[in-house]
Design a binder for these strands. Sequence first.
DNA 1: ATGCGGCGGAACGCAACCGTTACGTCGTAG
DNA 2: CTACGACGTAACGGTTGCGTTCCGCCGCAT
Lengths: 189, 189
Amino acid sequence: MLRNDITVAIRNAVMSELAEVGYGRLSIEAVARRAGVGKTAIYRRWSNKLEMVLEIITDVAGRKVPVPDTGSFADDLDLLMMIVSRALQHRVASQIIPDLMAEAARNPQIAETLQRVLRIHQQSVGEKLVGQAIARGELPEGTDPDIAVDLILGPLYWRLAVPRQPINDDYLEKLAAAVLGSLKGGSAT
Amino acid sequence: MLRNDITVAIRNAVMSELAEVGYGRLSIEAVARRAGVGKTAIYRRWSNKLEMVLEIITDVAGRKVPVPDTGSFADDLDLLMMIVSRALQHRVASQIIPDLMAEAARNPQIAETLQRVLRIHQQSVGEKLVGQAIARGELPEGTDPDIAVDLILGPLYWRLAVPRQPINDDYLEKLAAAVLGSLKGGSAT
DNA sequence: ATGCGGCGGAACGCAACCGTTACGTCGTAG
DNA sequence: CTACGACGTAACGGTTGCGTTCCGCCGCAT
């Protein structure tokens, strides 16, 4: 019987609040204010801040990412890196992700939740992508998909989270080429 | 005339508190409690939380990192990655760094301070390392030190901050080999 | 027409922290 | 011996947030 429009308003408010002040300073009262609802509406749905945030981010992060399959590993790689860099550069994502990661470092519940959600996507994407490439003979057999994922996502995430430099097409192209080279080289076996 | 032992106690307390609860939830009162000093001692030194944290982390982060120069780029790379991964895996660092990075995403003062301190080290290390290698003919001329740095530090930081998997010697070796491959390939020009 | 349930609003007591102030102690320099 | 200054402690008034409770409103189903 809980009104759905209210639930949606709260979810949006949580995401915005998370982006603005971070998990550490997120308060139920601020969420209620922003959503234009009473605190009661929130406590009727979740029993505290942690539970609320976990439920909401699990839902948001759980959306599927399509794995590229163009027929060429180089193109798959280009495409994947473009998709990821676009996603990471969206305003809300670029604020929330590092914040939650930092929070995960000290809150096992958050850590566990994020790991579960992220690992599924990330790992399966890696295995699928590398698997396709090996099957087509574009990568040496025994290429470690784990390292491949780290090489692909690492620099992008680093660039986003640390130097905070924009990732333009030119940079992306160079980076993709470098990653391709390292994997084709067959060093990651 | 401010007593030095007190200042040191406060600095340590700030670092511990940062690691435990993060910048967002760090309170002056908690720092004072932990350091075993009065709030007055803190306000006598800094006028607020931001100023205090900025001063302290600037100091800590400002320590020089030696740039490897073994005579071989492959060895330089191995050594650098080992040093960095060790540093990143230390308890306090692995908690504080992602937290401050997340905070930097919403606080320009923190962002500016971190960028200044980090960029100097990181950029100069990259340029020096790549420069040496080019001079020795181990890397193609025109190799972009920027991309090189991203390729080297990105996966390490990613691994630390996101999947939070331990970085053992075996993994490090494979990763270094892959990075070496990608740079030698000359794609990053 | 009646009743149920979700709603916003307001207030509750409690706790933590802010930044400031007053006080009394203690070590040291003059 | 005296004076100064940094120290810890305690308290200040004010703010914010917690999680709970009670109220009156309103939409909807019966």
